[in-house]
């Protein structure tokens, strides 16, 4: 992205359209990644709730996808997935 000059930027250092952070990808921070087993998932949404990076996508109350463009691989989703379900497993990221 070409950085704007002072004549082009909005005055007051504001960010006029929110949110813009998705333009910045954080997926390359990851050293391990969650693998989601859809068949085991009971859609309790705890992983969605606790994912710090809004990388678990929910539609109509159901988990639909993990967004690896942003997932930082913290492993909280695996941790909060109910022990009897275990629908998420962290595996080493392959580079």
């Amino acid at each position: 992205m070409k950085k704007k000059g002072w004549k082009e930027l909005p005055e007051g250092a504001i960010i006029p359209a929110a949110p813009t952070s998705p333009e910045f990808k954080t997926g390359d921070w990851r050293i391990q990644k969650p693998v989601w087993n859809e068949d085991k998932c009971v859609h309790c949404l705890l992983c969605w709730l606790y994912c710090p990076d809004s990388a678990i996508k929910v539609k109509d109350g159901k988990v639909v996808a993990f967004d690896y463009e942003y997932c930082k691989g913290c492993g909280i989703c695996e941790q909060v997935c109910p022990p009897k379900i275990r629908a998420i497993e962290m595996v080493k990221e392959e580079i």
Partner: peptide, 17 residues
């Protein structure tokens, strides 16, 4: 029309502002 006012403005933009 939510906006962000007073963000962290580092080497890339502080000078322009």
């Amino acid at each position: 029309n939510p906006i962000t006012v007073g963000p962290l403005d580092l080497q890339d933009y502080y000078f322009e502002h």
